[in-house]
Amino acid sequence: MLKAGRKAFPGWPDTVLAQVPQLPFQCPACRIRNVPDRASVQRVATVSSVPALIVSGTFDVKTGPSWAKDVARDLSRSTAVQIPGIGHRVVPQSPCAQRVLASFHASPTAPDTDCVDGLEPEPFTIIPK
């Protein structure tokens, strides 16, 4: 795979070429490397009654909050929370999300999500030139 990557993208470093393509703009790299199409298997919804916590940030541009609603539909015992004003890495950025996660570990079927109520995004700050 690395050899094919070097041939197709000679200017890219090996550290990048050795990674499995994860983003749509890398799909041409999959074709060049003859990676089989796994979309039919990877895009099958997981259906489960195992307790699950779905945490999303309202400013997430990678996996938007609407995705969390879609996932929650097939997880009958899930708790979905949206943290306002947070991007993709919600738990490291939000003390509230950290509390929700800790509560989920303590009580998977009834995590405490009270801290989410009333949360609002931080106001944007315009820095003058």
Results as ranks from 00 to 15, higher is better:
15 T>R: 11
29 A>P: 02
34 N>K: 15
124 F>Y: 08
11 G>T: 09
11 G>A: 11
128 P>A: 10
58 T>L: 09
114 D>S: 13
34 N>H: 14
17 L>P: 12
64 G>T: 14
29 A>G: 03
8 A>T: 01
88 H>S: 00
86 I>G: 06
11 G>S: 12
119 L>I: 04
14 D>G: 04
108 P>I: 07
104 F>A: 05
118 G>H: 13
92 P>E: 12
46 T>V: 14
72 A>I: 04
114 D>V: 05
34 N>Q: 13
4 A>C: 05
43 R>H: 11
32 I>S: 06
31 R>C: 01
36 P>I: 03
118 G>Q: 12
16 V>L: 15
9 F>N: 08
117 D>I: 14
121 P>T: 01
26 Q>G: 00
125 T>F: 07
102 A>I: 12
95 P>M: 07
99 R>F: 07
119 L>F: 03
19 Q>D: 15
1 M>N: 09
43 R>S: 14
103 S>P: 03
65 P>R: 06
25 F>P: 09
126 I>H: 12
111 P>L: 06
88 H>E: 00
99 R>C: 09
129 K>S: 15
91 V>K: 15
50 V>D: 01
38 R>L: 15
117 D>K: 10
42 Q>R: 15
5 G>H: 04
90 V>H: 07
122 E>L: 08
100 V>P: 03
90 V>C: 09
89 R>T: 13
50 V>F: 01
3 K>W: 01
105 H>M: 13
